[in-house]
């Protein structure tokens, strides 16, 4: 059985592997889209009433809803139409806000993007140097401090940390504003400081753990010993080791992202920030299903794409992995 495909796959194992990974991601997203689609039909209560929300349920309005969501078509057609619309960026109307889901999400996106960027930068700037130092000085006070920081950051939920910070730095010592997103520019950054710190704690703990583990492994390798024996300055040795440790740190990105999604919802809820997280919370509680569907699918796509990129980065950054994967 030497089909052209099989011959090609023997010739270019790396290419075949790429195709397999991409197809796997697409398959998972398709399954998820079916689950997300069926949410509307599985939600308790009458589907037309759910979609009408607080609007008066006249027969005309019900008929309009049936037409708008193609409820008279067979289920698979409904799914295909819904998926087609979703792929072109149309998720229908928000029941709660009487506006298109795309507009609602677009209006909330900047705050969430700003919050996650602040938290991300903050955690990288603190966690990577701390992780490197705690690996280099394993067992020292700085290592013990980093371990304690890691335990608290990994276990403490974002909202509990946020509320403690809110009390300490906004009520007890009124340094930061209590809630809201500020009025743009530096004021927004100022308003994002506390939520950013609460989010960065958990994020930093994950990055710290990855950095420390990866650095410890690199520092035990022969090239570090030889580098030191040749009299390379310690800072240069550490720089080389960190460059090699970067690969496992980068592939941890998908775990970081998974945490970030939940953490953002909690941080926004704690500090009453009008971002995507509070949008999700409000829509879930109101049962505004089109918005919930759009947000879930959006997050799934972003995570799947980033996980795929992290996977591919791993293969492209490390020739050893490439050789191993190709030989399978």
């Amino acid at each position: 059985m030497t089909t052209p495909l099989a011959r090609a796959s023997r010739a270019r194992p790396l290419g075949r592997m790429l195709v397999v990974r991409v197809l796997g991601t697409v398959a998972i997203l398709l399954v998820l889209s079916v689950i997300v689609f069926s949410m509307m039909h599985l939600a308790p209560g009458d589907i037309v009433k759910n979609l009408l929300g607080n609007r008066p349920s006249s027969p005309e309005a019900a008929a309009a809803i049936r037409a708008q969501y193609n409820l008279d078509q067979p289920l698979y057609m409904q799914y295909l139409i819904w998926l087609g619309n979703a792929l072109s960026g149309d998720f229908g109307q928000s029941i709660r806000m009487q506006d298109s889901v795309t507009n609602v999400i677009g209006a909330r996106l900047p705050i969430t993007a700003a919050l996650t960027s602040v938290a991300f930068v903050l955690s990288i700037v603190v966690a990577i140097p701390l992780g490197v130092q705690s690996a280099v000085r394993s067992g020292s006070w700085i290592d013990r401090f980093a371990t304690g920081f890691g335990i608290v950051g990994l276990s403490a939920p974002t909202f509990a940390v946020g509320l403690v910070l809110l009390y300490a730095l906004a009520f007890y010592l009124p340094v930061f504003p209590v809630y809201g997103a500020g009025s743009g520019g530096l004021d927004t950054l100022y308003h994002l400081a506390l939520p950013g710190i609460s989010l960065a704690l958990g994020l930093g703990a994950i990055i710290l753990k990855f950095t420390r583990t990866a650095m410890l492994r690199e520092l035990e390798s022969d090239y570090v010993t030889f580098g030191r024996a040749r009299g390379l300055p310690e800072s240069q040795v550490q720089r080389i080791a960190l460059r090699n440790a970067a690969i496992p740190i980068i592939t941890g990105a998908s775990l970081v992202l998974t945490f970030l999604v939940g953490g953002t919802v909690l941080a926004e809820a704690t500090f009453a920030l009008p971002g995507l997280g509070t949008l999700l919370q409000g829509s879930v509680l109101f049962k505004d299903i089109p918005v919930v569907q759009a947000l879930t699918l959006l997050v799934a796509v972003v995570i799947a794409v980033i996980a795929l990129l992290a996977d591919l980065a791993y293969i492209f950054l490390d020739p050893r992995i490439r050789a191993k994967e190709a030989s399978q």
């Binding site: 998820l32 949410m39 939940g262 909690l266 049962k287 919930v292 879930t296 799934a300 799947a304």
Partner: peptide, 15 residues
């Protein structure tokens, strides 16, 4: 492939 907390919020909340 789905963040645990997101899935929990959505499923527990909608249902």
């Amino acid at each position: 492939s789905l963040p645990m907390l997101l899935a929990a919020i959505v499923v527990a909340g909608v249902f």
